[in-house]
């Protein structure tokens, strides 16, 4: 998890929200862990019309101005990564 580019912090949780591994900004952050597990259980009950019962979410991202959280579940574990968003110098040049 440390090798992910632009990574600011990470969490690996069990399905019930217990922290298995953590690092960076999210080190031992049980508060964020609880919020994210609650968010996942909420997302399971979203719109049955727009998303059929066979359509399970595979990724959740939460985007702020300069960083974002990416959340995935694999092998009954919840993986959370906090990553920074770079505005590259070329983009700024275009705006000017």
């Amino acid at each position: 998890m440390e090798k992910i580019p632009d990574q600011l912090g990470y969490l690996i949780l069990t399905e019930d929200g217990a922290v298995l591994e953590s690092g960076g900004d999210l080190e031992n952050d049980e508060r964020v862990a609880t919020i994210i597990t609650d968010l996942i259980s909420l997302s399971n009950s979203i719109d049955p019309v727009a998303f059929g019962p066979e359509e399970k979410f595979k990724k959740i991202s939460i985007t702020y101005d300069d960083h974002w959280f990416s959340i995935c579940i694999s092998n009954k574990k919840i993986y959370v990564v906090k990553r920074s968003i770079h505005t590259s110098s070329s983009e700024i040049a275009v705006n000017v």
Binding site: I35, I36, F57, K58, I60, T63, W68, F69
Partner: peptide, 19 residues
């Protein structure tokens, strides 16, 4: 729920993805 992660920042955009 997403706002609770960083309550001092402006509300984030949440994106839920299926296939």
């Amino acid at each position: 729920q997403a706002c609770k992660i960083q309550p001092n920042l402006k509300p984030p955009t949440v994106c839920l993805e299926t296939d």
